[in-house]
Amino acid sequence: MVDKTLELFDCGHRACGGCGAALSARLVTKAAGTNTIIVSSTGCMEVFSTPYPETAWKVPWIHSLFENASAVASGIEASLKKQGRNEKVVIMAGDGATFDIGMICISGAFERGHDFTYICYDNEAYMNTGIQRSGATPYDASTTTSPAGKCSFGNKRPKKDIPQILAAHGAPYIATASVAYPADLMQKVEKAINTRGPCYVQIHAPCCTGWGFEGEQTIAVAKLAIETGLWVNYEMVEGKVVKAKKVVRKPVEEYLKTQKRFRHLFKPTRQDAEIAVIQAMADRNAEKYAIDIKLKKE
């Protein structure tokens, strides 16, 4: 067991007030403990946590390029193995580095079966460079490269299902977590780290600047994503879903209304057809992972 009272991601980093990614970094390092080497690809987290000569990390940390965090981690893991050392290798990368740019290296590393844990903090766009869309951006979200306007409702494509892609690689443990449920998040990270082979944890980390809500709402927004069924917290062992968080589902509007990136669905006129498409996605999620709690009729 690791000492969870230690703060291994220190104060003084330059994340926005209320940053979901900073919170996820804190929780992940808490769960991972001191016997850890962290590899970070380029992204918002790398920029706000390590402006030279400062660093917020209190565990060994190495920065790689956008695309090759898993290749760097593979090398570190192989070298530790050769030296007979037992440090755990953890990758912290954003959704851009995971879903788009790093995909080839991730696929390679998962195929080779290195013993590391890949953690993706998913804030659903390239936040560090100014909110450009990524493969993780949800349907109809407005970003600077998928702006909503007269001819468009924002991002036209649904979110890529990376956990399924990595499950197809034969990963022994895959989980999704959310900053709204910190105990669950830490438990999943710990489980992934202690499972042999390449494991993957995807953390839903709301970004107040990119999504357009006040910093204090970070946890509330993350909770709404789960309560509407647009984000599902589940665990997959050997490719099979073994556990999923069950909820009494709310309509998706309650989640969409909290954020400026979906504002065009309500103003100037309400776009019922588009909201229905998003509701259908939540319904599909609910069916796929069986997350609905059936209330007894009174």
């Binding site: 220190d10 104060c11 330059r14 030279y52």
Partner: peptide
């Protein structure tokens, strides 16, 4: 390289 937790210099 930087000293662990050096970000404390930045009083946010």
């Amino acid at each position: 390289r930087a000293r662990p937790g050096k970000s404390r210099d930045n009083k946010t």
